[in-house]
Design a protein around this nucleic acid. Structure first.
Lengths: 115, 115
DNA sequence: TCCCATAGTTCGGAATTACAGAACTATTGA
DNA sequence: TCAATAGTTCTGTAATTCCGAACTATGGGA
């Protein structure tokens, strides 16, 4: 198990962020990490919506988010803690993450929520 | 040649927009359409940066942008005019498009441009 | 009207990427 | 040392992407 790779903030690319968050499952995971006090174990995300995500897929999703520069993962005993890198990313790309999270919130709302 | 499909604004999904703009070539094309008076023929985009794009790929890129709801394409004689749907999209997902375009502008700048 | 040039689209095969089950590794606790 | 838990990696299959070649559509002459 090779050590986890985290890009430096100046190496974070918009295309990687957009690609990572273009998947609704990953966007939901990221939104949850941002919302839930900025820390969450992988195992806490066994399902998104009513869809169960196999753990190999989950692992890949976290890897994509990590390598896009959106989260920082560190081992804590047997589990993984995932911190959002929101502040760093927002400083580099102002407004990007909020706009994306809001867009998903709007589109999943029945009609014009997140107003 | 089937008629071009344009989604209604309420059917536009954030994942489609992010997927469309996660490709730097498409993002550059969209930025150019937005910048260049909101109208541009496909053939005006033979290259992005120093990279020449084959026309079959170009056609697909425009199709992805169109079906994501980002542009509206209409035939004008022998050529195609591509209008940005910025206003509609921005009304539905406020700040999303600007943030994305700005992010690309920042990342391609040598150091902290688009300030 | 017929033909040609221009602008885009569609087809098809190769290359790449994504998904998820199975096997593996790492850590903790009994 | 063994079992349990949490994640990762491997591997084969499925889905996407890319781009050259062939095709379609429109307009402008001769």
């Amino acid at each position: 198990m090779r050590p986890l790779f985290h890009p430096a903030i100046e190496d974070v690319r918009p295309e990687a962020i957009l690609h990572a968050l273009a998947d609704p499952v990953r966007a939901a995971i990221f939104a949850r990490i941002m919302g839930a006090g900025f820390v969450e174990a992988c195992s806490a995300v066994s399902a998104v919506g009513d869809r169960v995500i196999p753990k190999s897929s989950l692992s890949t999703h976290f890897k994509v988010l990590r390598e896009a520069g959106l989260i920082r993962s560190e081992r804590h005993g047997v589990e993984m803690r995932n911190h959002s890198r929101y502040d760093e990313v927002n400083a580099r790309f102002p407004g990007l993450l909020i706009a994306i999270i809001n867009a998903y919130a709007r589109s999943s709302a029945p009609r014009a929520a997140a107003q």
